[in-house]
């Protein structure tokens, strides 16, 4: 029974058009075999003239330098700062009670909307 259902599903997802299926493959095969050679010196020149003149940057080991820097920073911070004081200082900044008024919620929504618009704008501009 299961096999029958699987077969039927395969039939649904892979419709068999028989003759036109062959015809489609034949059409593309003809196009492939008869593909014109679109070679043009001028095209290459236009591309060459549009290439940026400054050298291509290769970031060899860039990530490793960042990682090493971060590790050194962490080690220094560990020895130079009193960790428990920093933690308690940060915790003291957290309010014990929090009151949310409609104005606060509106401000938060406005901030989130603004950030979303900014993110959308940044993505669209990076694509351009």
């Amino acid at each position: 029974m299961k096999e029958k259902i699987d077969l039927d599903l395969n039939r649904l997802s892979m419709p068999d058009f028989g003759e036109s299926d062959t015809e489609l493959d034949a059409l593309f095969s003809d196009a492939r075999e008869g593909q014109p050679a679109l070679f043009d010196d001028n095209f290459t020149k236009v591309v060459a003239n549009s290439l940026p003149t400054k050298p291509i940057r290769r970031r060899k080991g860039g990530i490793s330098f960042d990682l090493i820097g971060a590790m050194i920073g962490l080690v220094l911070a560990y020895f130079l700062f009193d960790v428990s004081r920093v933690v308690s200082g940060v915790l003291s900044l957290v309010p014990e009670t929090l009151t949310l008024s409609p104005v606060h919620i509106l401000m938060a929504l406005g901030f989130v909307s603004g950030m979303s618009v900014f993110a959308w704008w940044a993505v669209e501009n990076s694509r351009a």
């Binding site: 892979m14 419709p15 058009f17 036109s20 299926d21 015809e23 489609l24």
Partner: peptide, 11 residues
């Protein structure tokens, strides 16, 4: 699957 179906029908 869907693309082939459309192209075949058109052909």
């Amino acid at each position: 699957n869907r693309g082939r179906a459309v192209l075949q029908q058109k052909l």
